[in-house]
Design a protein around this nucleic acid. Structure first.
Lengths: 201, 201
DNA sequence: TAAATTAGCGCACACTTGTAAGCTGAGTTG
DNA sequence: CAACTCAGCTTACAAGTGTGCGCTAATTTA
């Protein structure tokens, strides 16, 4: 194994270790450098060979989480093309993501309202990407003006994220119920937006 | 001054000290017993004369914050009766509350997705109160079935809280813009809910 | 007024934290 | 193969943490 390869692998170990520590009881600010190092199987001081400090690791984790989200959207779009309805497909995809990547979604949720301004901003940017792409999609699909599409996308993403937070700590049965609820709410928003602003500007 | 009165006053000092430490960079899990004691002007060990541990203090703070929210709602209802529109009045009242009680709202927001299951549950309960009371109000005002009213109230509260989070760290000008946006979104929801479920069951 | 209660304090202890300094040994390069 | 690089290690330190123990002094009770 190369020196570069070895270093990259250790870096991945650190990232993986950090994610695994971010369970339901810990946030980025609550995990320590020593803990991450312990979990990754290296000495505390070796951490500095890979990251300047914990903040740099944290921002890396937020980036990775954002990337995972964008990949999710692509997957959702593929599924929509093969039928099933936009809202149904999108919500189902999102809920599956949450179930399968709990700690990734938790990271975004927690740091979105967390204690670090830098993390808050980073998460905010990722979510804004999410909103912008949805707004573009809505503009393509519906006869609606720009601002309405923006507001509609914004509301939808907020509802999905907020319900996702609830679903995260629920059992599958309740999760199903939450999914149905948010689907109905998204239809409210969609219909309301169409009714209030019918024409493109 | 009585012994009881003195003790009560110290207790209030502790609570006030804790709230003052919960600025934009700290959550309940990030403030230490010693810090609170220092800010309250007592010895660390004297803290135990008033609270079993920091968790007990935390739950007390959540309760106080919930109480403040409920008082807010009463104030909003009073304002609605003197005209101005439900949505406009409610959002304006909410935004004023956020501006004037930043740390109180921050506490709820942060602990809602925070690292303590007990705090999450406590905040969830407070928000559910909020939703239930709004659902009752909607049922009174609109010709709509029970479930739709519930979903509508749920969506509205989620949107307002989510936008509140954004407004919390924004300057007044941006805050105005956020207020307008959420008002439009609430109208989307209201109109959509009415259109999809017209009759009471 | 004597006895009991108790809010608050000082001291002490065992831990965990971030990180500075310097060493080792394996991989890379000329 | 000799020189160099550098990922990872051990050791060490100062700072901060929660909390047990026992004392003081003032209020409350009998």
């Amino acid at each position: 194994m190369n020196r570069q390869e070895q270093k990259l692998k250790t870096r991945q170990n650190i990232i993986h270790a950090a994610f695994s520590l971010l369970d339901e009881n810990r946030s980025l600010s609550a995990i320590s450098l020593r803990e991450v190092a312990r979990e990754a199987g290296i000495a505390p001081t070796s951490f500095y060979r890979h990251f300047k400090d914990m903040d740099e690791l944290g921002l890396t984790l937020v980036d990775e989480a954002g990337l995972a989200l964008r990949q999710l959207m692509r997957q959702a779009r593929r599924r929509i093309e093969s039928g099933g309805g936009v809202i149904n497909t999108s919500v189902d995809t999102f809920m599956e993501f949450i179930s399968g990547n709990k700690n990734v979604f938790r990271l975004l949720l927690r740091e979105h309202t967390g204690t670090s301004a830098a993390y808050r901003l980073a998460v905010h940017r990722e979510i804004q990407h999410f909103i912008d792409e949805l707004a573009d999609y809505i503009l393509e699909q519906q006869d609606i003006d720009h601002k309405s599409a923006e507001f509609q996308a914004d509301a939808m993403v907020r509802l999905v994220f907020s319900s996702g937070a609830e679903a995260l700590e629920s059992d599958p049965k309740l999760r199903k119920h939450i999914g149905d609820k948010v689907k109905a709410q998204l239809r409210f928003v969609q219909l309301g937006a169409r009714a209030l602003f019918k024409h493109k500007s």
